[in-house]
């Protein structure tokens, strides 16, 4: 028994590593096949673009979250942040309407406002975590509550609506297409490529991984730990502002229920993608697939009567748990002890 167990252990280890890298992709492929078998319309062009467009919001936010999580942090405030930024954008654009008319200028002012707010909110989260030396979980739990209540306050408990005059100008940002792909999908692709490059090909990405692996080692290796950590929250804020810019023209409104649970979906996408929650290992490619998996589940449930659409959350929850369980690789590895 002992003679067999050792080679098996080392073999399953390489298997687990492969699975870690390819697992999310395999899972997505299986889901797509299931979707097609249940309803061939699943693979229609219309449904696929719809899928990608819907993935874009969570996907863009999740790319930012990948940096925060890789560095060992967490940002729970992204959903509320998206809501308050939506609200502020609508207020700013509505008031700019009188001065600048319903043209592009107003939309640009709105987008500029979104980016400034996103960077600012990220900076606040980052500085409170690093300079304030408060756990990221607490800081962003706090700002989550603050942002959520601010949007409720701005909307006076109701809904903030974008003036119909601007909606026409702003509409293409969500509904428009370039080269056959909707604008949000382009934004998603752009953010994904930038994120991948930043994570895998720059010193910044290397520093994020180092800090997440062991902050002391990073400090002794001449890495400006506080600065890098703060920057990850700023990147997260920027990603939220981009997601908001493409989200607002979809409904043209913001309310207390905008972006509810987005933080959990974003974190779920990151984790399903293989990034380690306690930091030190980040995969942008995995995150993208994670975001797609979450959307595909919802979409499949919409397509079939097999499982109630109301159980979407249950299915997502199961997928997250199964994904992490598979990544741990504790199945099949037996009772190998770590010493």
């Amino acid at each position: 028994m002992t003679e067999l167990s050792t080679p098996a252990a080392s073999k399953s280890r390489t298997l687990v590593l492969d699975l870690k890298a390819a697992g999310p992709f395999v899972a997505l492929t299986i889901l797509v096949v299931i979707g097609y078998l249940l309803n061939p319309a699943f693979l229609s062009e219309g449904n696929l673009t719809n899928l990608l467009t819907r993935s874009a919001f969570i996907g863009v936010i999740a790319v930012g979250a990948t940096f925060v999580i890789t560095t060992g942090g967490i940002d729970l405030s992204v959903g509320s942040m998206a809501a308050v930024i939506s609200g502020m954008m609508i207020i700013v654009m509505n008031s700019a309407l009188e001065t600048f008319g319903a043209g592009l200028t107003t939309v640009f002012i709105g987008c500029g406002c979104s980016i400034v707010l996103g960077l600012g909110a990220g900076l606040i989260n980052g500085l409170l975590t690093t300079k304030g030396k408060i756990e990221a979980f607490i800081v962003t739990l706090g700002t989550m509550g603050i942002f959520r209540s601010l949007v409720t306050y701005f909307a006076d408990g109701g809904t903030l609506s974008l003036d119909f005059a601007i909606r026409g100008t702003y509409r293409p940002v969500y509904y428009g297409s370039v080269l056959g792909l909707p604008v949000p999908v382009w934004v998603f692709i752009f953010v994904a490529i930038c994120g991948w490059f930043l994570m895998n090909r720059t010193a910044f990405g290397r520093y994020c991984t180092a800090i997440g692996s062991n902050e002391s080692v990073a400090k002794y290796s001449a890495i400006k730990v506080d600065r890098i950590k703060t920057l990850t929250y700023v990147i997260q804020g920027f990603c939220v502002s981009l997601a908001t810019i493409v989200y607002v023209p979809r409904l043209g409104s913001a309310s207390a229920s905008t972006g509810v649970l987005w933080e959990l979906e974003a974190i779920a996408a990151v984790i399903i993608g293989g990034t380690v929650l306690k930091g030190g290992y980040g995969r942008i490619g995995g995150t993208i697939i994670g975001a797609l998996i979450l959307t595909v589940i919802g979409n499949i449930l919409n397509f079939t009567d097999l499982i109630s659409n109301y159980l979407n959350g249950t299915m997502q929850g199961l997928i997250i748990i199964i994904a992490v369980w598979l990544q741990r690789g504790e199945w099949g590895r037996g009772k190998t002890t770590k010493t």
Partner: peptide, 16 residues
């Protein structure tokens, strides 16, 4: 605890 990233390979450790 302060010198090397034990979970990483040699290359990223060397150049960090």
């Amino acid at each position: 605890e302060k010198g090397l990233l034990l979970g990483q390979k040699m290359r990223p450790n060397l150049t960090l």
